[in-house]
């Protein structure tokens, strides 16, 4: 049976849900081994060992891996690939940063953001911002793959894999972590939230964006997203951006407020189960894909909606 190495995405303390989607994809290829690389990551390893379908958790605990620096992590993965047939990473910013570096060191083509596994070396993936879907087959001996989380179910918590500590490869001394501005929020994480409330350029400015959208999001227990136009205009931070080059989300309900629906935005949310759109322009492209459409002035409709729930 093929042996698949899955990159565990985490922040040093908490295992990211995207790992679970990647495990589901990897399980279609062979036996799943999860690599937890970081500093002080025993808790993350425990969480990874409980994921259904995981056969083994490999833990590389070293300060050099604390921030997932690609320069330090890629040699570690390269060494492990001697015993694995595929490296699978969630298509998070960490996975997207590391996987191609591994692929080049292995001299194999990477298959980015797979949507489905069609065979041992055959996959579908989106191109042109999801406006076309390509079916590709690899001729390489080993595979390097990133997984679009929204296309695969999250693996559950019924596992009890063994945890194995592995040797480390040290610090290459080429890169170091200086600092981070991490958004802290009581709200659910955007890519795994059940409900997302998202705002566009029509929200006018950052204070208005907050005043209009946050009460609705809080009432629904929703995550907050934004269009690229809203992020570029400074209404919302970059980590809220939904779209081709931002985050890809597929919640149960996506509520698009004052978002016209540029193709780059639709690429990031069109797989949501139910799309609700509120926009005063009845010609807005978002209405062509919305399940529930309300043509209205958002500054009246959203507060009224919040008050009615």
């Amino acid at each position: 049976m093929a042996q698949i190495l899955v990159w565990a995405d985490h922040d040093g303390a908490v295992l990211k849900d995207a790992t679970r989607n990647a495990v589901t994809a990897a399980a279609q290829l062979g036996a799943v081994h999860v690599l937890v690389a970081g500093s002080g990551v025993a808790g993350v390893a425990q969480a990874a060992a409980m994921i259904s379908g995981v056969a083994k958790v490999l833990v590389a605990d070293d300060a050099a891996y604390a921030h997932g620096l690609a320069e330090n992590v890629a040699p570690l993965i390269l060494g492990l690939m001697a015993d694995h047939d595929a490296f699978v990473a969630p298509a998070t910013t960490t996975g997207k940063n590391i996987a191609p570096r591994v692929a080049a060191l292995l001299d194999v083509a990477q298959i980015s953001e797979i949507l489905s596994v069609e065979g041992p070396k055959r996959f579908t993936r989106p191109i042109y911002a999801g406006n076309a879907i390509a079916t590709v087959e690899s001729s390489d001996a080993k595979l390097v793959i990133t997984v679009r989380g929204t296309a695969f179910a999250k693996a559950g918590d019924a596992g009890s894999a063994q945890i194995e500590t592995i040797g480390t490869t040290g610090d290459r001394g080429q890169s170091s972590f200086i600092g981070a501005e991490v958004a802290t929020s009581e709200r659910p994480e955007l890519t795994s939230a059940r409900v997302v409330v998202s705002g566009g350029r029509a929200l006018k400015d950052a204070p208005t964006f907050e005043q209009v959208l946050f009460p609705l999001a809080d009432r629904l227990g929703a995550a907050v997203g934004a269009s690229r136009a809203a992020v570029d205009a400074g209404y919302a931070p970059n980590d809220c951006q939904v779209g081709q080059t931002g985050k890809i989300v597929a919640p149960e309900v996506y509520i698009a407020v004052g978002i016209s629906g540029a193709i780059q935005h639709l690429a990031g949310m069109k797989d949501s189960k139910i799309i609700v759109a509120i926009n005063k322009d009845e010609e807005a492209p978002i209405f062509q894909i919305a399940d529930i459409a309300l043509v209205a002035d958002l500054f009246e409709a959203v507060p009224a909606l919040t008050a009615s729930l």
Binding site: H67, F177, A180, E181, V182, N238, D239
Partner: peptide, 9 residues
């Protein structure tokens, strides 16, 4: 990055 911004040297 997914959580916000980070700076590397």
């Amino acid at each position: 990055v997914d959580g916000g911004l980070e700076t590397l040297r």
